[in-house]
């Protein structure tokens, strides 16, 4: 449809200009050129869709995939693809290396923690507290007025218990998100490669004590199954090594805990990999379990490239 609309409109615009030329409309910035650009983009987008549909009908899977790969060879498209042509199916590292470090070369961004639990806890906490407060005020007023409403009093008991649980859960979730200050993670090289060494620097702000503070390099596989009405994603850790461990540390406000470490990436490990339904991901995981309160785990994704002996770089 898009292709047809674009093609018909573009032809109409151009033909009308040829048959009935009005030179002033050809001036830059005028509607004519805008129309041509918009309609041409309709033709290109629609045409692409038509071609894709046509190729998908009655072609082998290799042929379809080869056509997709050929299209990826076009500069504009290849720039927008998640992996480069030199390292197919390895995610690009642009988001990981665009922030320079203070101590080492790159400062890694952290993987976002899901906040939906905190949002839900806040909503439940606010709603339940409001309802419980109103009910409690009414119950107390009845009792003070020597006209106790026992049905309402009995109703208030589970409400107070539920509210107590909601308050506790809300503060636990809040603690998870705010108690531990920001973690800064810097690295001397990126991407990492098997059989190579790299230096890391980690800084943890906040005000708490930790019996153990660790940094681990983790590799996990991820597979998504979407057959029938089922969609399930499974992850499995296939490699984990501790690269830093500090015991009994106390972090004070304004004086973050800082530590350096060197690590070797072993040979023979799989590189980062991403395809439609499968992935191999590498990450640093910073963990800390405080004496009391929720434990901390922060993730810093990294890329591991293949150890190329004679590959094209």
């Amino acid at each position: 449809m898009l292709f047809l609309l674009g093609a018909v409109a573009l032809t109409t615009v151009i033909v009308s200009q040829i048959l009935n030329p009005t030179p002033e409309v050809l001036r830059p910035g005028f509607g004519f050129w805008l129309m041509v650009v918009v309609m041409a983009s309709f033709v290109l987008l629609g045409g692409g869709g038509v071609m894709l549909t046509a190729f998908q009908a009655g072609a082998s899977i290799e042929r379809r995939s080869a056509l997709v790969r050929q299209a990826a060879g076009i500069d504009l498209i290849s720039e927008a693809l998640p992996s480069s042509q030199q390292h197919p199916n390895i995610p690009r590292d642009a988001d990981l290396t665009n922030s320079p470090g203070v101590t080492l070369v790159f400062r890694l961004p952290t993987a976002q923690m899901p906040v939906w639990r905190l949002t839900l806890a806040t909503l439940v906490f606010l709603l339940l507290t409001a309802v419980t407060s109103v009910v409690c005020v009414i119950v107390v007023n009845h009792h003070l007025a020597q006209t106790p409403d026992w049905f309402l009093t009995l109703f208030a008991v589970p409400l107070v218990i539920a509210n107590f649980w909601a308050v506790k859960y809300f503060f636990t979730e809040l603690g998870v998100h705010t108690r531990h200050g920001p973690t800064c993670f810097e690295i001397s090289h990126h991407p990492l490669r098997p059989n190579s060494e790299c230096e890391i620097f980690v800084s943890q702000a906040g005000r708490f004590s930790l019996p153990a503070f660790t940094v681990a390099l983790v590799c996990e596989e991820e597979a998504t199954y979407s057959q029938g009405t089922d969609i399930r994603t499974e992850t499995r850790v296939v490699y984990e090594t501790e690269v830093l461990r500090q015991e009994d540390i106390r972090i004070e406000a304004g004086t973050p805990f800082e530590a350096h470490s060197r690590l070797s990436i072993p040979g023979g490990v799989m590189h980062s990999f991403q395809s439609g339904h499968n992935a191999v991901r590498w990450k640093f995981v910073v963990r800390g379990t405080p004496v009391s309160g929720p434990s901390m785990a922060r993730t810093f994704p990294v890329l591991v490239y293949p150890d190329n002996q004679n590959g094209q770089e």
């Binding site: 899977i61 379809r64 995939s65 997709v68 395809s275 439609g276 339904h277």
Partner: peptide, 8 residues
């Protein structure tokens, strides 16, 4: 990328 693998 999604393909049917009837022939693998």
């Amino acid at each position: 990328m999604s393909h049917r693998f009837d022939d693998l």
